[in-house]
């Protein structure tokens, strides 16, 4: 090896791995992203359905999450950090893209836990400002973007973490609920087109807003289902 010692091959990579790891103690494992309800109603019954579910989830909710995480990471990284009211504006942009109150609640719950965890792992002024400005819990992709910046990631890496975590929770949930072969499901995860939902973002009002009407219905039905293993 003749690389300079201590020079990482890609800056931010360690932060990305830690943030995308399901073992990050931020409560992500409690959410199935609609997969539990989809399994219950029979919309997912095997690996093929699951693959279609995850592709659709990535192309819609995943694309929106990636764009929000990109914007949040870039905003946190600006020399002065995003202005205080800017966080509330980006949060309102996320709100306008999540029509289902059940999904807004799940997103904020996960965002609040992630900010609380990330503040202790990677203390940063932007995380402190976000926690203060959006005390009920920022939406998860925004929390993820700001945490990613604190962990040394680029906006692109933040978007990748958001795209990836938009499908992994649902995939793991389906393995547990349907007893699917975990290797088959990981093959499905490996085949997903993550790069296709990641793009540079500038204008917050023009961020992608891909809706998934079935996910909205599943999220609301799930809240009304008595026996639930997952929060969402």
């Amino acid at each position: 090896m003749n690389g300079a010692p201590g020079q990482p091959p890609t800056p931010g990579l360690a932060g990305l791995l830690l943030l995308a790891d399901s073992r990050l103690p931020a409560g992500g494992h409690a959410h199935s992203g609609g997969a539990e309800e989809a399994c219950r109603v029979g919309a997912i019954s095997g690996p093929e359905d699951l693959a279609r579910f995850l592709r659709g989830r990535l192309a819609t909710a995943g694309r929106v999450a990636a764009a929000l995480a990109w914007s949040a990471c870039a905003g946190a990284g600006e020399s002065t950090g995003a202005a205080e009211s800017a966080w509330r504006l980006l949060d309102a942009e996320a709100d306008a893209r999540i029509a289902s109150p059940a999904q807004r609640l799940a997103s904020r719950t996960q965002g609040r836990l992630l900010v609380r965890t990330a503040k202790r792992i990677w203390p940063s002024p932007a995380l402190a400002t976000l926690a203060r400005e959006v005390p009920d819990g920022a939406h998860h992709p925004i929390a993820l973007g700001v945490a990613a910046q604190a962990a040394g990631c680029t906006p692109e890496q933040a978007a990748m973490a958001a795209a990836y975590t938009s499908v992994t929770g649902a995939a793991t949930a389906a393995v547990r609920l349907l007893g699917l072969d975990p290797v088959t499901v990981h093959r499905v995860l490996a085949d997903l087109p993550y790069d296709s939902v990641i793009a540079e973002q500038h204008d917050w009002s023009a961020l992608p807003a891909h809706a998934a009407p079935a996910l909205d219905l599943l999220a609301e039905q799930h809240l009304r289902t008595e026996v639930r293993l997952f929060v969402s």
Partner: peptide, 9 residues
């Protein structure tokens, strides 16, 4: 990616 997805339509 979204046609026929149980997550979308």
């Amino acid at each position: 990616d979204s046609d026929g997805s149980p997550a979308v339509f």
